[in-house]
């Protein structure tokens, strides 16, 4: 099961936690300087080191399946689109995904559901240990882990959280949040679209600095900041509930109606309504069920987050059998999928 199909803690604000470690092998060219034969050897060696992992050769994968992995946030779009030898190793029970021959030799990532950065780091570190048993990893006492791009030097770790921040978005707080975070060596970017106009109100908050700070310090600093963001987002949701519960319930119920009763649903329209419904689930919980938001109990964060991934073009195409779809055909399938996933039968 992919990461998004699992349950997680604090899912009302945090969809997922991710830790990514970039690692390279000593004495081996990186990026486009790595010859195909040596890339193949590297992939073979990784397979021997990573016991219990499934190997997917991306250079032999059809483009739709490759793009679907990118939409699931498991691989980068560059990795999905490249043509050179490269492989993804997956261990879904350990929430760990390793790209071999991305710009670095290894991009180890662990993606866990909800707010669990420490777990994600433990999984990623375990995978790194497996690789370091087989390969001499490039390291320098002053610069840390040596990476293709000098911006990643040091721990070469990117810890991030995917956060759902509709109330902070609505009150225009994202730009000031971004400014404050950048002063603290952290960064925020929209998961879909850019800046304060991020579709689906989803943001990725991550560390920017990797040199001069340990892995644990990075995680604990990020955790403290994220705690503050969560509290502020929830405070504003409660405020909304206190001031205009009926209006919020109205918007949410209508959006749920659109998601479950449409016949042609574009991706953008889906995301706009998805935000309202996801917020509605949270507000309903915050009101202790006193306000009726019109969302059946089978619709949870897990159902909604799965629907978000499944509504993306490539994943949707795969779910419909894999044959190429026109945008209109996708809109038709998206509506059908939402009725099935979120409707009463779902």
């Amino acid at each position: 099961m992919s990461w998004y199909g699992k349950e997680g803690s604090m899912s009302d604000v945090v969809l997922s936690s991710r830790v990514r470690l970039a690692r390279n092998v000593e004495g081996l060219p990186m990026g486009d300087m790595l010859a195909d034969e040596r890339a193949a050897e590297l992939i073979k060696g990784a397979g021997e080191a990573l016991v219990g992992y499934d190997r997917i050769d991306f250079d032999r994968l059809d483009p739709v399946t490759a793009a679907a992995y990118a939409e699931e946030h498991i691989v980068s779009t560059e990795f999905a689109a490249a043509k050179s030898p490269r492989a993804l190793f997956t261990n879904e029970s350990a929430d760990t995904y390793i790209m071999v021959c991305e710009e670095d030799h290894f991009r180890i990532q662990s993606i866990t559901r909800g707010y669990s950065l420490n777990d994600a780091y433990a999984h990623a570190a375990a995978a790194e240990s497996a690789l370091s048993g087989k390969f001499k990893l490039a390291f320098d006492p002053e610069l840390g882990y040596l990476t293709h791009c000098p911006t990643n030097l040091g721990t070469a770790m990117r810890a991030s959280l995917m956060m759902f921040l509709p109330a902070l978005t609505e009150s225009g707080q994202i730009a000031s949040l971004a400014r404050q975070l950048s002063k603290l060596g952290m960064t925020v970017r929209g998961m879909y679209g850019e800046g304060s106009d991020a579709a689906a109100c989803l943001y990725q908050i991550s560390n920017q600095v990797t040199l001069g700070i340990t892995e644990e310090e990075t995680i604990s600093k990020l955790t403290r900041l994220v705690d503050t963001i969560i509290n502020e987002e929830l405070r504003r949701r409660r405020e909304l509930l206190g001031k205009s519960a009926d209006e919020a319930a109205d918007i949410c119920s209508r959006s749920f109606g659109i998601l479950t009763h449409s016949r042609l649903m574009s991706c953008r329209e889906f995301m706009d309504n998805w935000v309202n419904v996801r917020l509605g689930v949270s507000l309903s919980q915050l009101s202790d069920g006193k306000v009726d938001f019109g969302i059946p109990s089978n619709v949870t964060y897990k159902t909604l987050d799965t629907a978000l991934i499944e509504s993306q073009p490539a994943v949707l195409t795969l779910l419909s059998g894999g044959g190429e779809l026109t945008p209109r055909e996708r809109d038709l399938r998206r509506s059908a999928l939402l009725r099935e996933r979120l409707g009463e039968a779902g």
Partner: peptide, 19 residues
């Protein structure tokens, strides 16, 4: 990165155990 030197784990150490 600013004028700083590396702090963090080393590949020789078993980081999974540390974690």
């Amino acid at each position: 990165h600013g004028g700083v030197t590396y702090k963090g784990t080393t590949p020789a150490a078993d980081n999974s155990a540390a974690a």
